[in-house]
């Protein structure tokens, strides 16, 4: 069985700070990580590999050359092979163009039984690339997967698909595209073997646009249907009132008075 896991290297958004004077993000010194949901997808693929025979796990990423670091980490966790899609022609891609490129790479890899993505990336939060890949490859999809069983004999998967107030129990034949959420599992750490053997000896393949069969009008900035019109930092020009007082009781009294004045309580 062949599983391909799509991963994205992202800045750790918990560490992102804003320069209020220039209204821009401060990215310097912000660590890059494997997108958390993608890590859950990878963990699940590795679990399937632990249980079933003859499973290969390929990790696939699109990004700048630095994204190799994320792929190295995936290899250190136990993935069998890693491919980085990197080319200036890919720059500026929105989710449509990104999914176009990733699905071209998946077609080249071929013979996959499961394409596994994280539900969404913490930098963009769109949750669109997974379903768009599924559409381009004409695959059924199950998103928000919180539990998974692979029935290899019958060539199908049974999954719990999380919704706001519960979940669907779903079944699909393979090949299928799945997207993982946090509840699915707890990702393993890199192992010593993984770091010293696998990650250091497995070559990360690099594919450029020339390695793919892809319509050049449908990738990069000019192949993207959506464009960023502007970005801005949320402004909060707002003067609140500090409720002063010597004691907690004084402050509580001020609170009560304001609430009555505003007819809130």
């Amino acid at each position: 069985m062949k599983i391909v896991v799509c991963v994205k290297q992202v800045p750790d958004t918990n560490e992102v700070k804003i320069n209020h004077e220039t209204g821009t993000l401060i990215r310097e010194g912000v660590p890059s990580i494997i997108n958390p949901d993608d890590k859950n997808a990878l963990e699940e693929a590795l679990r399937i590999k632990d249980i079933h025979k003859d499973v290969t796990v390929t990790v696939l990423s699109m990004g700048p050359p630095q994204a190799k670091e994320a792929l190295k980490e995936a290899l250190a966790m136990g993935a069998d092979e890693a491919i980085l899609l990197t080319d200036r022609a890919f720059a500026g891609s929105d989710t449509w163009a990104t999914a176009t490129i990733l699905s071209a790479a998946l077609s080249k890899i071929g013979d996959y039984d499961i394409v596994f993505c994280g539900r969404q990336a913490i930098d963009g939060d769109t949750a669109q690339v997974g379903p768009e890949i599924a559409e381009f490859l004409n695959l059924p999809q199950i998103t928000y997967v919180s539990n998974l069983e692979v029935d290899e004999d019958n060539n199908k998967v049974i999954a719990h698909r999380s919704i706001e107030d519960g979940y669907f129990v779903m079944e699909s034949k393979m090949p299928v595209l799945l997207t993982a959420i946090k509840d699915l599992n707890t990702p393993r750490y890199m192992s010593a073997w993984g770091i010293f053997q696998n990650a250091n000896t497995t070559e990360i393949m690099e594919w450029t646009v020339d390695d793919l069969t892809v319509d050049l009008t449908q990738i990069g900035l000019k192949g993207s249907p959506t464009n960023v019109y502007k970005t801005f930092v949320p402004t909060r020009k707002f003067e609140g009132e500090i409720l002063e007082g010597e004691t907690p009781q004084d402050k509580a009294r001020e609170f009560l008075v304001r609430m009555k004045e505003r007819h809130i309580l």
Partner: peptide, 21 residues
């Protein structure tokens, strides 16, 4: 919703248009 975000990208990519999440 968890459902709309599954449906939206699938529709947009079948039609050939952009989607903003």
């Amino acid at each position: 919703t968890t459902i709309g975000r599954d449906l939206g990208p699938r529709i947009a990519s079948r039609i050939g248009t952009g989607l903003t999440a």
